[in-house]
């Protein structure tokens, strides 16, 4: 428990430091994710150390969105003002992104000789 958490927090800390010092637009934890990916590729011990703790955190990932989601109560004026536009944007863009993604994947796979 101690080492896996230290590795996760250490990667985040390093990512945060890199993001701030270099003034990158990428959030620190995302750089931390890339860093952990590199560590796992480099040392065989790292994946087996981190995996159980990572699975516990990711298994309850949805819970972590709740505090930010509740922030909607402080934005109710904006929801009232733009509610229809926001809903239309979410519906339309999600359907378009799904269709575009799957069509691109299949199109490119077919060009590369994949027949299924």
């Amino acid at each position: 428990m101690i080492w896996p958490l230290s590795i996760l927090l250490g990667c985040q800390l390093a990512g945060e430091a890199v993001s701030r010092v270099l003034g990158l637009p990428v959030p620190g934890p995302v750089i931390g994710m890339v860093l952990l990916l590199v560590l796992m590729a480099g040392h065989r011990r790292v994946p087996e150390t981190v995996a159980p703790t990572a699975h516990v955190i990711l298994g309850n990932l949805s819970l972590l969105f709740v505090p930010a989601g509740v922030g909607i109560v402080s934005q109710l004026d904006k929801v009232a003002q733009y509610g229809f536009g926001l809903l239309a944007a979410l519906l339309g863009s999600t359907v378009l992104a799904l269709a575009a993604g799957v069509a691109t994947f299949r199109g490119v796979a077919r060009v590369m000789g994949d027949r299924r």
Partner: peptide, 19 residues
Amino acid sequence: FVHFLLGPATVALAVPLFA
């Protein structure tokens, strides 16, 4: 305290990605 865990959780996304 719950919100803070989003950071380490983002880092942890590397594990399924690696697998």
